[in-house]
Structure formats: C-alpha cells, structure tokens
Design a binder for these strands. Structure first.
Lengths: 233, 233
DNA sequence: CAGCAAAATGCTGCATACAAAATACAAAAG
DNA sequence: CTTTTGTATTTTGTATGCAGCATTTTGCTG
C-alpha cells in the first residue's frame, strides 16, 4: 500500500462471498483490523502517529464505531497504544523493545523447532520445503518483498508445525509486532546471504527431524536477526 | 464476584479521581475490560456462554458501544471468540489447549528465570520474597483464594524481574488465559504442599541468583502444574 | 512585544437510533 | 406426523448525535 492518496472505499468492501462453500467470509471487523495492521506494518501509519477516527474513517469509508472497535483490537495486540481522552497512537518500539521481542521470539522458535520435529507430518514439512525453495528463487531474483513475505511465512509455518496452537498464536502476535521493523530493515547482500544460508540449514534439520539442530539454528537465526536490524531501529 | 444477582451499576463507576496526582485514572474501557475478564475468570461467564450485548450492558449499566469495544479487546486477548453476525462467546479450552499453553508458559518462565537472575535488583527480589512469605502464611491458614492470588502475583513478578517487557507482557496474556483453569483446579492437600515446596525452591534459587536452578524449578513447577489441573479440564 | 487568561475549536467517549442478519415460531404442504 | 417455508421477533452490526475534555487561538494586560 503506497502512501499519498490511499485506496478508497472500494478496497474495503465486504468480501462478496468468495467461491464455493456456504461459509461466511470476512466480516467488516476483520477486514478493518487487517487493513489497519497492514497500514501500520507497511509504514502508512508510522510510529507516534495519532489514529484520527474521523479522518481515518472517512478515508476508509467506514463510520467511527467499527473503526474504534478495530483499534481496540489492535491495542490488545500491542500495535497501538490507547491514550485516555486522546485516542490511539501507533506504538513506537525502542531498540531494547525490539531486542526483547527477538529474545522471546527466539525462545519460542526454539521450542517450536523441537516440537515440530516430533509432531510435524511429512506433508507439512514438504510444504515448508516448498516455501523455502520459492524463497530462494525470490532471493536469487533479488525480489526483496516476496523474499520477506515468504521468510515470514516459513517461520509461521514452523510454529504451526509444532502442533501447539497457543505457541503458534503467540508466535504470530510477536512476529506481527516485529514485522514493521523487519520490513524496513534492509540488510546488505552479505548479511542477506547469511540469512538464506541459515534458512537452508533450518530446512535440512527439519527434514532430518533433528530437533537439537533445528532448535539451535532457529535460535542462532534470531540472534543474527538482531544484528541485521539493530541499526535500523 | 458471586453469581446470581450480580453487582449493579455501582460496581462500574468511573474511578472517582483517586488521591493525589492530576493523572487521569482508569477510563471506562479499562474498567469494562477488567470487569469482563474477572467475570470470565471467576466463572460468572462460563465457557461457551454467549455475551449478550443488550442484557450484559444493562446489567453493567453501560451502553452497547463501549461494551462491544471491550469485547473486541478481550477477543484479541484470546478470552472470547467472535462469531460473525452472532456476537461473542466465552472461549472454551480443551485439555490439549491447556497443556499447550502450559508448555509455552513453561518455556517463557524458564527464560524469565534466567534473565531475572541477571537483571533483577535486590529490592525486586526482596519484594518477591515478601510475596512468597505472605503466600506461605495464607497456605498455612488454608486461605485458598489469597494463596491463589499471591501465587499468580509471584509468577507475574518474576516475569517482570526479567526486565524484558515483551516477555512480561506475553507471559501475562498466557497466564490470564489459564487463570480460569487454575481458579477451579483445587488440588488435594499433598499436591498443594508440593507446589508450596517448589515455590520455596524458586525463591531460594532467585535469591542465590542461580539461573540454572531457578529455570529448572520453574520448568518443573509448570510440568507439575499440568498434573495438578489435568483432571479439572 | 511577551505572558497569560479565556474563549473557541476539534476530537474523543459514550449513548442512541437505524439497518441487516439470524433465530424462533407458526402455518401449510407432503 | 414430518418437513418446509414464510413471517415475526430478537440480536448483532453500523451510523449518527451529543457532551466533555484537550488543545489552540485570540485577546487582554503588563
């Protein structure tokens, strides 16, 4: 989502009952939450920015009521901060905050790695491998954006392979909080190459169901992640 | 909060500008969130219960708008589930969910223990010790409720001693989700005694700043916690 | 011209009002 | 007697309106 004149009402239509299946698709609340989340992650709403209900609602073509509900949701998620009588502002993370989050994320991924080696299905592992291969292709093509997205997807997928829903959930929250940071953190070629190499190790360990190795690599990967983004923060 | 005729509007008054300090105290949103959370934890709203906006709002003396905002907040926190076009229901956790949450909590507390041994101030440790002593007194007095609350406070305090805000935050969320379970889980005298003994070990390790030991005890404590509540789930 | 007081503006917070969807019920058809 | 369909009621979802607080601007005084 580029800034300047941002997308209009059309971008927020209630999902018009996609393909097959009678299942109710996304409600406005969800749509709004996702939309705002993206705006924050992609920098349309930078840290410290006040979420002006009237203005924002008008831009998105929604009244203040559902917008406020979405904002409260995001506040609980930790992306925005509620200031009594003064609305909500996009939360600003200090360098220490980021380091702390990465520390927790590291611990969670180490756990996820151990569990995944036991619990994951072969099919599940194959899917991660597919994501990885695609990511490497994007890396070779120099497509940072797609690389970034696949990178996130892989970590999310591993958390899910653990079979531990609570773990996957918390991991997701934390990863979301860090997305904005990682999104802007554009490391140089050599660091990028190192990250890809670590990913290669990860996948190999996962396929070998070597939980010690996988846990170790995931941990190392996140320690290095801090090195990669520390200047950007 | 006992069930039956529950407390009326009076219980939800906006905090009447407590003592000194010009700082704006709790807004209605926070009050509502806390109130609803307590109602869920203490069983006033049992799992599967639909949160009827009209009725609930009337009981609490609040209109639907802020109530809905609070519900959305709790949904993000994982205590209630939003069903499109059908409102919100109190989330029901399966035995596996609880076990999974405890697994993650264990990992987080082990991390918190390690960090706390390095980062905690002597004063902070002393506070935890005070909480512990008080808890033991309540235990000896057979006061389950106060014991339970102090128990929670101690774990929260240790997470905070880590100096890692993200860790303390996530730990808090997870602990809250588990509160309801632990609240109903009334173990027998022998298990209770074992739990107290483990706490004694914890405090000792913390005071000695023995991170290996503390981490180990915290981990063991939570594995045992699962044994203590597994039948209640 | 600087400093401060007071009004005016703008925004949030909460309540109410309206619209759409779901559920419950009843009647009719098989 | 069961099932289905149409209608009424209830409940959620969204919009609007109003009051209170915060901030800013304006006007007065030194």
């Amino acid at each position: 989502m580029q800034n300047g004149k941002m997308n209009e009402i059309t971008s927020l239509e209630r999902r018009p009952e996609g393909g097959p299946g009678p299942i109710r698709r996304t409600a406005l609340h969800d749509t709004l939450v996702n939309h705002l989340r993206d705006m924050i992650i992609e920098g349309d709403l930078s840290p410290g920015t006040r979420l002006h209900e009237g203005q924002l609602g008008e831009q998105l073509g929604v009244s203040r009521t559902p917008l406020r509900e979405a904002i409260k949701y995001l506040a609980s998620e930790g992306l925005v901060e509620l200031v009594p009588s003064r609305g909500a502002v996009v939360k600003r993370f200090s360098a220490k905050d980021v380091k702390d989050m990465l520390t927790v994320l590291q611990s969670l991924e180490e756990l996820a790695g151990r569990l995944a080696c036991e619990a994951a299905s072969d099919a599940g592992i194959a899917e991660v491998r597919a994501l990885h291969d695609e990511m490497v292709r994007r890396y070779r093509a120099g497509d940072r954006m797609q690389y970034y997205k696949l990178n996130q997807q892989i970590h999310t997928a591993i958390a899910q392979l653990s079979g531990n829903a609570a773990l996957a959930d918390i991991h997701g929250v934390l990863q979301t909080r860090l997305k904005r940071i990682r999104f802007v953190g554009h490391e140089g070629p050599e660091k990028w190459a190192a990250a890809v190499a670590e990913h290669e190790e990860m996948i190999a360990a996962l396929e070998a169901r070597d939980e010690v190795k996988l846990s170790e690599v995931l941990g190392r990967h996140l320690i290095n992640a801090w090195e990669r983004v520390r200047d950007s923060v």
